[in-house]
């Protein structure tokens, strides 16, 4: 119980931020029209590529001889970068196709 109390006191701001982020996510999406659901999905999918930041920090905090960590970290960056580059590029390609009536 004490640990839980401590956790809350230490991370109160983070908890507020997370709750607001959840709320913001709900609000932002509920107003997107059906027409744009696919680009929206692939666009937010690209955002989940932020996980790459973790891979970068992981490799940077490794010693230059910790090969297991370096290789796995590089793997996570490669996977994350495919997600980012592919996600944004494909979303852009889709959105370019949406045209107004001439």
């Amino acid at each position: 119980m004490e640990q839980i109390n401590l956790f809350f006191n230490e991370n109160l701001l983070e908890i507020y931020v997370l709750l607001m982020a959840i709320f913001l996510g709900f609000e932002l999406i509920s107003r997107v029209p059906t027409v744009l659901h696919t680009p929206l999905m692939s666009g937010t999918n690209a955002i989940s590529g932020v996980v790459t930041l973790g891979g970068i920090i992981l490799i940077r905090s490794a010693e230059s001889t910790a090969y297991l960590q370096l290789v796995l970290g590089a793997l996570s960056i490669i996977l994350g970068m495919i997600n980012i580059v592919g996600g944004y590029a494909v979303t852009d390609r889709m959105l370019k196709m949406f045209k107004k009536e001439k």
């Binding site: 983070e14 996510g25 929206l40």
Partner: peptide, 11 residues
């Protein structure tokens, strides 16, 4: 990462 990930999760 936290907020970006949560935004995606919520949306």
């Amino acid at each position: 990462m936290l907020i970006g990930g949560i935004l995606v999760g919520a949306s």
